[in-house]
Amino acid sequence: MKSHRTATRRFLPGSPFNVPTVPPPPLEQFALNDRVSHDKYGLGMVIGVEDDIAVLVDFGPQQERILAPYAKLVKL
């Protein structure tokens, strides 16, 4: 019985699998009383910040806890 040799993989310049990994963009930092805009809830003000986890935003008639990575939340 022959033992299996591990072959080194060839580098193929046109391969879609050779794409270098791009690190995700850094999370936007929010502070108390920052004015923000959300795609669904509209304009609001940050009233609470949990480090890199979530922000609590007052949108007037309601308060919402927005989780990171804050895809639809924009600082104004």
Rank of each mutant, 00 (worst) to 15 (best):
D34K: 02
K72C: 11
P23I: 00
F11C: 04
F17A: 04
A71K: 15
T8K: 15
S15Y: 00
D52L: 07
G48H: 06
L43I: 06
A54W: 05
G44D: 02
V74L: 12
A31S: 14
K72G: 05
S37C: 01
K75H: 06
S3W: 07
P13G: 06
E64R: 15
Y41K: 00
H4V: 13
V36A: 05
Y41M: 08
S15L: 00
T6L: 14
S3P: 03
V57K: 02
N33Y: 09
V49Q: 08
P13R: 12
F30I: 03
V74K: 15
G60Y: 05
P20R: 13
V55L: 07
R10C: 07
P26M: 02
K75F: 02
R5E: 15
P24I: 03
L56Y: 02
D34L: 02
V49S: 08
M1N: 11
R5F: 12
L27E: 04
V57W: 03
E28I: 12
E64P: 01
K40Q: 09
Q62W: 02
T8H: 14
V36L: 04
L43M: 09
D39V: 12
T6D: 11
V55F: 06
P20I: 03
P25S: 09
S3V: 14
L56G: 01
A68D: 02
M1H: 13
D58E: 12
T6N: 13
S37K: 09
D58P: 04
G44W: 01
V22H: 09
A54C: 11
I47C: 10
M1Q: 12
Y41C: 00
P25T: 11
P13S: 09
D52N: 15
V36F: 04
T6E: 14
N33F: 05
L73V: 06
P24T: 08
A68Q: 10
V74I: 11
K2E: 10
I47T: 12
N33R: 08
V49Y: 07
Q63W: 00
T6Q: 12
D39E: 13
M1S: 15
P16N: 04
R5P: 01
D34Q: 08
D39R: 13
E28S: 10
K2F: 06
L56N: 03
Y70T: 07
I53P: 00
L32M: 11
A7W: 09
A71C: 03
R35E: 10
G42Y: 03
D52Y: 04
P23R: 13
S37D: 01
L56M: 06
P26E: 05
Q62M: 13
R5S: 11
S3I: 11
L27V: 05
P61L: 03
P20W: 00
V36M: 02
P69E: 10
G44R: 05
N18S: 11
K72I: 00
P61Y: 02
Q62Y: 03
N18D: 09
P16T: 07
Y70M: 05
T8L: 15
